[in-house]
Write a protein that binds this DNA or RNA. Structure first.
Lengths: 184, 184
DNA sequence: GACGTTTAATAACAAATGTTATCGCTAGCC
DNA sequence: GGCTAGCGATAACATTTGTTATTAAACGTC
């Protein structure tokens, strides 16, 4: 799991010079599973996913859009090999900041450090909720949840990525969709 | 999800007077789903579980043993209704500290505050791993994982609690066990 | 416009998991 | 000793989900 909307933009404005701009085509890999994360990315335009290899077929764990930040936080923070890859889905415009510069920003701006901590805590709560929904809800219910909460994901992301994110096969997701369509 | 082993004991020694000792019978509820958490508990003896109500049947989300700490962190920290209940499984001896005193300890001892932050981060990583195992692994594999990593849980906790923790029915868990037994 | 690639829908069948019911064992209690 | 409640195993059947294969639509590229 990764980064979303890491802090209010305005506080970051004075550090804009620390970011580097990138224009990347679709399916570009920013970080490969097993490598150590050197950068954190802000998304100006486009969308990305994180995924890992599971016996040959990849499993998507999260999606990211304009305004989000993305990195392998565990790898970035602990200087350890990342458990997943980061890859663009659409052509993207990104801004990257290095681990070192990021540390500098954190150390020099307490309010940002606080934001990051709060952000981490929220991610923990979010992750717990996701886990609970996997324990108690059917895949169909989880799909409907996304459909309600984040229709943008459904509209924009290829279906087989969504299926693996839900923890089911693309065939089954297709069945769920047609079942829901018939109900109306 | 909750608290485990919140910090090295020795650093806490000078705050022992802030803790209150409790002896409780099995099946005692410490915090009821929907209430706001006022205390954090250290476990001296016994084991507990956290669970929430899902259409009448309860779902167990975590287990806690000697040396662990337990609370509804979200509720404790944010002063919001807890999403789950905390309940003893065996007769227990616990030590409780109030929200206010806990805050005092955090504020007066930076090393403890750092520990807590690191602890939170580890919980996030743990929660992510659990979530991934729910997406990619079969219930049987998750059961074998516990059997290897935490045999104490299997030995000590009633099976139907473990089943709901794994996200399956107790019937299915029984099947998995007999299948594994036949393999040997 | 022809071609390959990606994406999605569907069918037929296999495997995994849930539901309900029954039985036996054990521990605590009278 | 007998009773009851809780726990666990098992069977029979229903439902959900995965697997594999086929087809077709959409899209980009040349």
């Amino acid at each position: 799991m990764n980064e979303r909307t890491i802090a209010k933009i305005n506080e970051w404005d004075k550090f804009n010079h620390l970011f580097k701009r990138h224009e990347l085509p679709a399916k570009t890999v920013l970080l490969r599973e097993g490598d150590i994360s050197k950068n954190l990315y802000r998304i100006e335009k486009g969308c990305l996913r994180t995924w890992f290899n599971n016996d040959g077929n990849d499993i998507t764990t999260q999606f990211f859009f304009e305004g989000d930040s993305v990195s392998s936080l565990e790898s970035f923070k602990m200087n350890q090999p990342s458990l997943f890859s980061i890859e663009t889905i659409e052509p993207c415009i990104l801004q990257s900041i290095s681990r070192k510069d990021f540390q500098f920003v954190m150390d020099s701006t307490p309010s940002i450090k606080l934001d990051i901590e709060e952000h981490l805590f929220k991610r923990l709560v979010y992750c717990q909720k996701l886990l609970l929904s996997h324990i108690k809800d059917s895949p169909q219910k989880r799909y409907e949840e996304i459909l309600n909460q984040r229709p943008d994901i459904i509209m924009r992301i290829p279906q087989h990525y969504i299926a693996s994110f839900l923890g089911i096969t693309k065939v089954h997701l297709s069945r769920i969709k047609s079942k829901l369509a018939r109900k109306e």
